[in-house]
Design a protein around this nucleic acid. Sequence first.
DNA 1: AAGTGGTCTAGACCACTGT
DNA 2: CAGTGGTCTAGACCACTTC
Lengths: 239, 239
Amino acid sequence: MPLLTNVPKIKFKPVREVVYEYLRDAIVGGHLMPGTQFTDSQIAGEFHVSRTPVREAVQKLEAEGLIKRTPMKGNVVTGLSPLELVQIFAIRKALESEAVQYAAFLRTHQDLEAMRSALDEAQQVFRTLPEEQCQEAYIPLAARFNRALFDAAHSSRLTDLIWIHRELLDRYRLLRAVASRRPIESLQIREQLYSLIEAQDSEAAGALWARHIDGSYRIWTKFAHIPEGAARYLAEPPA
Amino acid sequence: MPLLTNVPKIKFKPVREVVYEYLRDAIVGGHLMPGTQFTDSQIAGEFHVSRTPVREAVQKLEAEGLIKRTPMKGNVVTGLSPLELVQIFAIRKALESEAVQYAAFLRTHQDLEAMRSALDEAQQVFRTLPEEQCQEAYIPLAARFNRALFDAAHSSRLTDLIWIHRELLDRYRLLRAVASRRPIESLQIREQLYSLIEAQDSEAAGALWARHIDGSYRIWTKFAHIPEGAARYLAEPPA
DNA sequence: AAGTGGTCTAGACCACTGT
DNA sequence: CAGTGGTCTAGACCACTTC
């Protein structure tokens, strides 16, 4: 009888994944700024590995849109233009609202519990901590709620796409900026959403989340001083 | 003075792309059936190339969800379960409705012309050809219209995602089956859509397309004898 | 013409499978 | 413990850039 069950199998991590994750975290975490140029050989040299696995890692990053490869010029960390940011918000809105509708249909009791526990801890935070510390403590809890929320859709295709697009924005700490603006409102929205999902009212849940994203977008455009021209597509949402 | 202008530069095509495109077309075109197993070495042998570029092609196919790689078991062409098909329809609905809304905002005169010409040719087809031949002739024209439609959104991120998900379904000739069921209705919807986009009524255009996708889905579930349980998420669309 | 970046080959190596 | 599949290395090669 083994002492532990469900011990995660110790995986041999391919070099390409180590490199991929390192670069990805560096870009998303803001250490590699947009515009930074580098070549496969450089990376290979610094990791003391050959270029083949680096190539593969870089190809994956390119497919996800985090870097751009231009022939004979090397790789460059992509900066997102205002227009692209708008487009990503639009994609998020479409995908996340759909996922929320699914979540309301398909949520299990485990899903509800996972969301509930994140909300309870957040409520606890706001009751006990002074306002300045709330923001810092709330952010990871909101992230946990979101994770549970999208998992409740039980569609890995949908959730994978959602997280890829969230990460594109993470790089700019946009979501963080938005969340920390009005943490209490953010929590209230999630409480409402929880009720709707518990009640399986998928239509209202999807609509609430769509409005929430429009709201985030509006806050962020002010925060980042986005030119009006680029902003209009979502700032006055068409639907 | 050169004889021709805008001659497309003859590109050296990397082996990985040749392999990628070949496999992709074979899978999407139905020649490689779901469940078919193969290894990198096999492919490399048949193309008389080394395994590295094949690996890269296969990784790309995996990222797009066309094949699955399981350690020590080789690669296998993915079959899509009924649930996955439903999920892909849901993703399509979310992305394509969003794109249509964008298209209504951002369409240029060139975009309108491209759509118009596909529609005109289709009208011509229905006026001149007997009904049986219409279906065959209409399908590529509908595809051309769709291409112009999504291009009008001027968001490569959005359109790339859309085509990837359409291709996942192409494999089963689902869209073809749906389109050829009622080609005239299909054309009428596109004519309506064209008017709405020309009038920049993005709300109505998005809603029309969302309904169209729900409709396609319903036709297809009948056509493919999908079990009710899996069908319900979209057959009675939540929104 | 030299240099750089990108790609491919051949083969070694290692992890896992099944006898 | 041989066999197979998956990964990596080292280096050759070629396309393109720059001097």
